[in-house]
Nucleic acid binder design. Structure first.
Lengths: 113, 113
DNA sequence: TATTTATTTCCATATGTCTGGAAATATCGA
DNA sequence: TCGATATTTCCAGACATATGGAAATAAATA
């Protein structure tokens, strides 16, 4: 993962409503959720939520797809996985105990280190 | 990890110079690094770097300790580990394949799920 | 076509962040 | 005590972000 990709993903998640929306989308999985339902669920005005969703979208963390009058948002699993891998990467260069996570399929071994 | 802790940690890392400083501190490990050395290494003015270090510090990601004229900064491994766990948490509630990481010691099993 | 529903875009305001010059504080060595 | 070194704090300008009212766009339905 490129450093600028990581920065915009971290920045996108570093906001109360966006983090909440992202976590909700993660939980609902590939069914996704309409913009209006997200706004209602999180008690955020629709236009404000729309702005936040576009930030998450531009960071590549979610995608949108029109379905009739609604626009369905879904997470992009790969980007989240890459971000976790990116954050874990450094500590695994020499000091695995600092990160304490394992990333399957990262290399030949079954841990990130 | 509390949600506000996560937000400030994410926000602290979502900036070019801070992310670079943090990653450098992760790489040097518990030896840590002086504020001036960090500024020089990353080609950032000392006062600007000082501000960034205080943001990382307030987010709990690093700590400081005076050593003579220098102030040594070190990462706080637990907070990084907690943040990774926090981000991984949601996707592991039902959709482990989305997160693709394992957090040892998370529960009784050896993976986060 | 007109109406309702769903969402986005436009816009202005308020607030927060990034930056670096200059001054203040702290420590060491002479 | 003085000067040099290391770092922080203060400050102000430039820029970016968050918010929500109002209008615009898009789609379904009658």
């Amino acid at each position: 993962m490129e450093i600028n990709t990581a920065i915009s993903a971290l920045g996108a998640l570093a906001q109360e409503h966006r983090l909440a929306a992202f976590r909700l989308l993660v939980r609902v999985g590939e069914d996704g959720m309409a913009a209006g339902d997200l706004a209602r669920s999180l008690a955020v005005p629709h236009n404000t939520m729309s702005t936040h969703l576009s930030v998450l979208s531009q960071a590549g963390l979610i995608t949108s797809q029109r379905n009739g009058r609604s626009i369905i948002y879904r997470i992009v699993p790969d980007v989240m996985r890459d971000l976790l891998g990116f954050l874990a990467d450094d500590c695994c260069q020499g000091r695995p105990e600092l990160c304490g996570i394992a990333v399957p399929g990262k290399t030949s071994t079954s841990t990130c280190c």
